[in-house]
Simulated assay, not measured.
Amino acid sequence: MSDTDSRDWRARVIAGVSRWLRQETRPLGMPRNDFERLCEQLRPADVVLVEGRTRISGIIQSVTLSSWTHAGLYVGRLDDLAAGDAVARLRDAGVPGDMPVLLEAEIGRGVHLSPITRYAREHLRLCRARELSVRDAQTVVAFALARLGAPYNLRQIGDLLRFFFPYGLLPRRWRSSLFEAGHGDMARTICSTLIARAFARVRYPILPEMHRGPHGEVVLHRRNARLVTPRDFDHSPYFEIVKYPFFGDDVARYRELSWADDRPVP
């Protein structure tokens, strides 16, 4: 088999695996958030977490013990973005200029822009970096936008999943290479890694390692961005969880809510 044939065969296998991992395995449920209100309150550099329903989402949920399996970075309305191929494709697809746009990295698509309406019926959570300055938010967004078109790092998903298992129990050839010097192509990325690197650009913490120094002082250690998962933005004490529940302000009238089973609770 020639080198060209070998590359073509490898590309077809990767494409097939990517399609299989992207297939949805759970039915679309009723979203538990007020999508329209969430869209109105978005700010640049907000992180939008998604409870996925694909095969890869199920794997991530099982390993991370979290329902959040995907993360997108809000970069602004379409009219606010500089002209480029990605913006032009959205305009050609008929996306309105005032539509909120997410930057995300996905298997089979790499780093791309998406209108947030693709998640209009999904369960979402909004995570906002506390006290992040407007200037730093712009830097975070600019860093992420500069990675548009980068391929998705399918190998990193495998490495990340292996990392959650006891290291010593795995055969040497299966052990995670996340920490090996020079491993991987930094041009490739996954959704949470890209966002973590963008916030690291302005030295903003997500879940840093904290240790005591020789004199009792707190010493912060940067966490490997490749180890960051979507749930870490939910767990981070430095990100506010902004919720827009389905009932909105009407939940104050909780006694008047209509339940399918109205029998009194014993």
Rank of each mutant, 00 (worst) to 15 (best):
Y74Q: 02
L102W: 06
A198M: 08
V265M: 13
A260H: 14
G182N: 09
Y74S: 00
W259Y: 10
L102G: 07
G184W: 07
A181P: 05
G158I: 04
V140T: 02
S176G: 10
S67I: 06
S192E: 10
L169R: 15
L28W: 00
S133T: 15
Y74G: 03
R253W: 08
P100H: 02
N224K: 09
P166S: 12
R212Y: 13
L257E: 00
L49W: 09
L42I: 02
A88C: 12
E180D: 14
L113M: 11
R226P: 01
I195P: 08
D34W: 14
A137F: 00
D232Q: 08
G84L: 09
A82D: 11
V228K: 09
V50K: 11
L160N: 02
A137K: 01
R125Y: 00
S114I: 06
E240G: 09
G58L: 11
A200R: 13
K243Q: 12
P208G: 13
R231Q: 09
V50T: 12
L38D: 00
L170T: 00
E256V: 01
E51D: 14
D232W: 07
R172T: 02
P166L: 11
R212I: 02
S236D: 06
V111T: 12
F239M: 04
S62F: 04
S133G: 12
E104H: 09
S2A: 05
D232R: 06
P115K: 05
D98G: 08
Q138Y: 00
D250L: 15
T229P: 00
G248V: 11
H215V: 04
V50G: 01
R91C: 09
M1D: 02
N224Y: 09
D8E: 15
A83S: 15
C127L: 14
E36L: 03
D80V: 03
A15C: 05
G248K: 14
A181M: 08
L160I: 03
L170D: 06
H221M: 03
P208D: 10
G149M: 06
R89E: 14
F163E: 09
T54V: 01
A71M: 08
D8G: 04
I195Y: 06
A144D: 05
R263P: 05
D98K: 11
R55Q: 10
L227D: 02
A129P: 05
R203T: 00
T139C: 07
D8I: 12
P96E: 12
V63N: 01
